[in-house]
Amino acid sequence: MARILAVDDNPYNLELMTYLLVASGHTVIPAITGSSGFDLVRAQRPDLVVLDIQLPDTDGYAVLARLRSDPDLAGLRVVAVTAYAMVGERDRALLAGFDGYLSKPIEPTSFARTIDTYLPKALRGHEPSAQWPEHPDLVTTDMVLTTMDSYGSNEAQ
């Protein structure tokens, strides 16, 4: 079980990732902007960041650069998950310093397994569970949006 920060500006896609990761037993911290994602990383120190590239305020590359230039966050793992899937995008992402690159649409059956490979060794070994209905942390888009709204109002204060 790991604490994973997921950043995506599309709430349905954020819900999908969250759902798949939570179903695999992880805790997910959702964010829909680059700057809120960065602040949450500093505040929550997740084990992994899953970062979309196209974001409303800044892009994933700029967020990555900020994360990488912060000495407190050395060793943080960041995986790009993006709908930018043209030739060269993977190389560009890896060159910029992402630890991994996944293109959308993601493959739901293997997504959590793939993310697992980027986790610190001690935290690996999780699979989506078919026991979902009994899972206590059901995540929905509405939930994510509510979380974001409260976060956004916090940020405004």
């Binding site: 599309n10 349905y12 896609n13 999908l16 798949l20 709908a83 899937a85 293109s103 959308k104 649409p105 993601i106 739901p108 997504f111």
Partner: peptide, 11 residues
């Protein structure tokens, strides 16, 4: 790709 992600993902 963005909407297809949710379509295929939740399917």
């Amino acid at each position: 790709r963005t909407p297809l992600n949710a379509i295929l993902g939740f399917t």
